[in-house]
Each structure stands twice: as C-alpha cells, then as structure tokens.
Amino acid sequence: MPEQHHLSLTPSQEAERYLENARQILTEKAGKKDGLYADVKYVKMAAGTAYSAALLILDEYLRQKEGIHFTKPKSIEDYMMRLRKYDKKLLRILANVYDELQLAGYYHGTRSVDTMQNGLNNVRQMLSYI
C-alpha cells in the first residue's frame, strides 16, 4: 500500500494494521516449533511492531481524555501515571503488554509463543478503549 493511503486511517485502524503486521511476521518468519519461535530476530521485530500499536492506542485514548491538554507521554512511567487517573483495568493491561512485548519480546527476545500471543491478545483488548 502506498504511504499516502495510511494517512486516512483512524488511530484504531492504524493500530490494527500494526497488530496484523506483527502477527504476519511471527507466522511467516519466526518459525514455530514445540511452543517456541526459532528466529529471535523476527520475534523482536514483531514485539516492537505490536508494542507500537499499543502506544498508538494509548496516545489516542489519552488524546480523547485530555483533549487540547494532551501531550505525548515521554516514558512508560508517564503513560502509567496518566492512565492511573482514568482507567485501572487499562493500566493493568498496559503493564502486561509492557512486560510481554517490550521487555520479554523486544529486549530479551523471548522464544515463548505463549508470551508473544498473550502480548498480542492484550493489545487487541486495548483496541476496545478507543
């Protein structure tokens, strides 16, 4: 798809696109065997892509809540502090997504299929907030 096409996507559609890209990377490139991924490089790539979807969702959620006062958070702590004011359940989902995708998936390159699937499912849950 040409880049201009993506400018017309809503934040929800854009996050959905990132999530789909992450699933594709895991399915087509990471190679699954015995509940583990074979190629950590692709796990890290997919985790980063899915985590980016989560941040897109959170930015839109906070934009809706804060209106003209919205500024993009600068850190995970900033996201968590601001979410704490609005929705504790979303805050818990974010904590899981951060652990599963950002720390285990992206930083440590987990080979665990379960960890990655939980992370993707949690991001999918976040979509319902925007």
Rank of each mutant, 00 (worst) to 15 (best):
K32V: 12
R63G: 04
L90E: 03
A30D: 10
P73Y: 09
L62R: 01
M45H: 11
M45S: 14
S8M: 11
A46S: 07
A15G: 03
Y61G: 03
P11S: 02
N96D: 11
I93E: 02
V97Y: 00
L36Y: 12
R82M: 04
Y42K: 00
P73S: 05
D78K: 02
S75M: 04
A50R: 02
K29P: 07
D59T: 00
L9R: 05
S8H: 13
D87I: 05
Y42A: 10
P11G: 04
L19C: 06
T27M: 09
M45P: 04
L9G: 00
T71G: 08
D78H: 05
I25N: 10
E20G: 08
F70Y: 15
Q24K: 14
V40E: 14
E16S: 12
G48E: 12
K44G: 15
A47N: 03
G35A: 01
E77Q: 12
K85A: 13
E60G: 02
I25Q: 10
K74S: 14
E20W: 08
K72M: 09
I25F: 08
E14F: 14
L83F: 00
I25R: 05
K29A: 10
Y42V: 09
T49S: 09
A38F: 09
Q24L: 12
T27N: 13
D87F: 03
N96G: 10
R17S: 15
E28I: 03
Q24Y: 14
V43E: 07
Q24H: 14
L90F: 05
T10R: 00
E77T: 11
E14N: 12
Q64V: 10
L101M: 09
A46L: 02
A38R: 10
L62W: 08
L101Y: 07
Y51G: 06
K85P: 04
T10G: 07
L90Q: 04
I68E: 15
G67M: 02
